[in-house]
Design a protein around this nucleic acid. Structure first.
Length: 509
RNA sequence: GGUCCGUUCGUCUAGCCAGGUUAGGACGCCAGGUUUUCAUCCUGGUAACACGGGUUCGAAUCCCGUACGGACUACCA
């Protein structure tokens, strides 16, 4: 295959926020293009005007910007094969629909939606399925069943019509899928799909074939839900006299529990985002959470997503986008659907968080501190982060892990007090604060040495002293190495906290 | 209902195409260790070839069937 001619596209419909399954499809397309030195195109498939949702297109573009996935051509980017929005290509499709009629591969159909509906109901009541196919088409109102003059008359009168594909009656269609291998279907079970709607717009089937051909798409990589219409598309290429691209149908993303396609509802129910970015429904005002707003790093999000249906073949799990463009291959994409695991998504974020520099994290954490009303020195914040970042999954977790570096305890964890504030604690802490007062330099190592020596000399229990001490400084039995904490907050603050704690907790009888 | 696709630990998966592995890794979970606490971390453990036939000396791997699951079955994409 000539790599210079590799061209793939992601072709979403602007009907709402982009689902993570869609993001994954786009990601695989992108990686395939980059790996093979090809081009990645964004095409907007807005042929259904009734389903248009304002803001959806912008949402899609913003989502990919956040992920770091870049298009080479397409909506918002331009390129030599534009326009890239199907509503702006309206005139193009008509001529191909006409050509199909001309060649006898398509025909006009005048059945109204109501008639079709009745027909379906009628069949349903007999427990049969209506299919607009070779067996039925002559019983319907179309240019095949009607005499020529009648069709002409109807057309001239402006009676609404659609253009349907004339599915061959009994033909075996052999197709190849890059992921699944050979797929064979007989046209007997297929129907005469509408290619061109009465509103003058093509359906997906016609538009995607025409555009993929005109845009010189070499590989169509899309969701598994399209597999059933692959025979139609292959036949369409053939009828139009075009060479079909290669196809790859990706497995679905499934719900974490039970079965079925992952949907927005699952996210709400199980408490994780299904969308890359937060989305506010323009009609209902309903808010759906997004990975970005939930605190995920785009790198972690992409990394988590790429491994849902693909793996490198070795045991590596952490990849940058850049690395992925080198190791990705369509052959290693799985056949079966993957259940989404929110726990593993968190693990990925943790991995990325601990790998970030204290400097970068400090930059991200400063605004969080500000929200809590804290103005802190950046170097101080950096040091704090170095001590606690291992314990966090998200930047916002850093607060829970470090607030005691910034504010003195207002109250003391009741359980901890009960467990660790013993009869001797008051006197011991009083004694300790005297020792600390004279400890110089007030560094973690030096304080540790001094305090440990004192404990040994007095034969106090290490656990008892340290836990009581921690209680006074932190307010709870948690946090990093205690001597690091006191050294960082400084002698004055340490003594202040101890004094206040002694006052509040008092001497236990 | 019909058509197509799929099925390895709870989850993501390696292994399957070119039959011979104690069926490997990761997340989770459990236990132990480290620690002044919590968390991290380290070590260990738990746990899977959907089922039934066939081919073969030998099947997770090849073939057939069954079951289960999913997608599709619109003038939606």
């Amino acid at each position: 295959m000539d790599n210079n001619n590799i061209r793939v596209r992601f072709a979403p419909s602007p009907t709402g926020p982009l689902h993570i399954g869609g993001v994954r499809t786009a990601l695989y397309n992108y990686l395939f293009a980059k790996k093979n030195g090809g081009k990645f195109i964004l095409r907007i498939e807005d042929t259904d005007q009734t389903r248009f949702v304002p803001g959806a297109e912008e949402y899609i573009i913003e989502s990919f910007e956040w992920c770091g996935i870049e298009f080479d051509e397409g909506v918002g980017k331009g390129g030599p094969f534009g326009p890239y929005k199907q509503s702006e290509r309206k005139e193009i499709y008509r001529q191909y629909a006409d050509a199909l009629i001309e060649s006898g591969n398509a025909y006009y159909a005048f059945d109204t939606p109501g008639e079709l509906n009745n027909k379906r109901k009628e069949y349903e009541s007999q427990k049969k399925n209506f299919s607009y196919n070779a067996a039925e088409r002559m019983n319907m109102r179309n240019s095949l069943s009607l005499p020529g003059y009648e069709t002409k008359k109807l057309l001239k009168e402006g009676v609404p019509y659609v253009i349907r594909f004339k599915m061959p009656e009994d033909e075996t269609v052999e197709m190849n899928d890059l992921i699944r291998g050979k797929v064979v279907v007989n046209t007997k079970v297929l129907d005469d799909k509408v290619l061109y709607k009465s509103d003058g717009m093509p359906t997906y089937h016609l538009a995607n074939v025409v555009d993929d051909h005109l845009m010189e798409i070499s590989h169509v990589i899309r969701g598994e839900e399209w597999l059933p219409s692959l025979p139609l598309h292959v036949l369409l290429y053939k009828a139009l006299g075009w060479e079909a691209p290669e196809f790859a149908h990706l497995p679905l993303l499934l719900k974490p529990e039970g079965n079925g396609k992952l949907s927005k509802r699952d996210g709400d129910r199980l408490g994780f985002p299904v969308f890359p970015l937060q989305w506010k429904d323009p009609k209902t005002g309903e808010l759906s959470r997004g990975y970005r707003e939930d605190g995920y790093f785009p790198e972690a999000f992409v990394n988590m997503l790429v491994l849902l249906g693909w793996n490198p073949g070795d045991e590596r799990e952490l990849f940058t986008l850049e690395e992925l463009t080198k190791v990705f291959s369509i052959e290693r994409v799985n056949k079966s659907g993957a259940k989404f695991d929110p726990e593993k998504a968190k693990w990925f974020n943790h991995q990325y968080l601990i790998r970030k520099s204290d400097e970068e994290l400090a930059g991200l954490f400063m605004p969080v501190l500000k929200e809590h009303g804290i103005e802190a020195d950046k170097d101080f914040v950096k040091t704090v982060i170095g001590l606690v970042k291992e314990r966090a999954t998200f930047v916002k977790d850093l607060w829970d892990q470090s607030y005691f570096f910034f504010i003195a305890p207002e109250e003391y964890d009741k359980k901890a007090v009960k467990k660790r504030w013993k009869a001797q604690s008051y006197d011991q802490m009083k004694e300790l604060s005297e020792i600390l007062k004279n400890t110089e330099p007030f560094t973690s190592a030096n304080i540790e040495e001094t305090v440990k020596k004192w404990i040994e000399e007095k034969e106090y229990g290490m656990g008892g002293v340290m836990n009581a001490f921690r209680l006074l400084i932190v307010g709870a039995l948690k946090g990093p190495h205690l001597f690091d904490i006191v050294a960082l907050i400084g002698k004055a603050e340490t003594l202040k906290r101890m004094e206040k704690g002694l006052q509040t907790l008092g001497k236990k009888e």
